[in-house]
C-alpha cells in the first residue's frame, strides 16, 4: 500500500504526461501504430480504449477482494474481453462506418497491455474511486497520444485533419505516412520530442533547485 495518502488529482494528471502510457511507458503499441493513420480513427480507437479501461478498472477494483491472486490475470482478461466485445458490438450497431474503419483492431484492444497493466499495477490494489481516476487519466493520456500520432500522419499523409481539407487540391500526400513505416517514424519522432521535453524540464528543475540552495 502506498504510505502517503494518494492525491486524486496527482493520480489523474500522471497519466496525461509524466506516466503517459505511450510516451513514457511505451505500452499499447499495436493499436498505436495500426490505426493512427487518420485522426478520426485515432479518436475512435482512443474512445473505445477509454471505455474498456475505465469500465475494467472499476470492476477489477470492486471485485479485488474476491479474486484469488493465482487466477487474477485470467480474471482480468475475461473482464477486459467482455467489455471489448460489448464495445465491438455496440460500435457495429451504432457507428457502423467507424467500425468498418477500425476493423480487426477493436477486438485487439484485449491484448493492449496498457489496460491489463493498469489492472495489475493499480486497480487491483486501490479503492474504486482512485482506480477510476487513474484509469481516466491513463485513458485520456492514451487518447492524447493516439490523436497526436493520428493528426501528424493524417495531415502529412492525406492533407486533411479530421476530414477537413487543409491544403487544397494540389497537395502532394506523403504516402509513407499512412503506411506502417510512417507510423513507426512518427512514433519515433514523437518519442524523441517527448524525451527532449522531459530532459529539458528536468534540467530546468535542477537549476531551480541549485538556485534555491544558493539563495538560502
Amino acid at each position: 500500500m502506498p504510505t502517503s495518502k494518494p492525491d486524486a488529482y496527482q493520480e489523474f494528471i500522471k497519466g496525461l504526461w509524466r506516466d503517459n502510457p505511450v510516451f513514457a511507458q511505451v505500452l499499447g503499441m499495436c493499436p498505436m501504430l495500426a490505426v493512427t493513420n487518420s485522426a478520426v480513427n485515432a479518436l475512435a480507437m482512443g474512445g473505445a480504449t477509454f471505455f474498456v479501461l475505465v469500465a475494467s478498472s472499476f470492476l477489477v477494483s470492486s471485485l479485488k477482494r474476491w479474486i484469488p491472486k493465482q487466477v487474477r490475470i485470467s480474471t482480468y482478461v475475461i473482464i477486459i474481453a467482455t467489455f471489448v466485445t460489448v464495445i465491438d458490438y455496440s460500435l457495429q450497431a451504432l457507428l457502423p462506418a467507424i467500425h468498418k474503419e477500425l476493423g480487426a483492431f477493436i477486438p485487439l484492444i484485449v491484448v493492449n497491455c496498457m489496460i491489463l497493466g493498469r489492472q495489475e499495477s493499480f486497480a487491483s490494489r486501490h479503492s474504486i474511486g482512485l482506480a477510476v481516476i487513474d484509469a481516466l487519466g491513463m485513458a485520456v493520456g492514451f487518447l492524447f497520444a493516439l490523436l497526436a500520432l493520428g493528426s501528424v500522419r493524417e495531415i502529412l499523409g492525406n492533407g486533411t485533419w479530421l476530414g477537413l481539407d487543409l491544403f487544397g487540391p494540389n497537395f502532394e500526400p506523403w504516402v509513407i505516412m499512412v503506411l506502417p513505416p510512417g507510423g513507426f517514424l512518427t512514433l519515433g519522432l514523437l518519442l524523441l520530442l517527448f524525451s527532449w521535453l522531459a530532459e529539458r524540464r528536468q534540467k530546468l528543475a535542477e537549476r531551480l533547485a541549485e538556485m534555491e540552495v544558493e539563495g538560502t
Binding site: 492533407g159 491544403f167 487544397g168 494540389n170 497537395f171 502532394e172
Partner: peptide
C-alpha cells in the same frame, strides 16, 4: 518548381 507540400 512546385511549392512545398504541393505538386504540379
Amino acid at each position: 518548381l512546385a511549392a512545398p507540400f504541393m505538386h504540379i
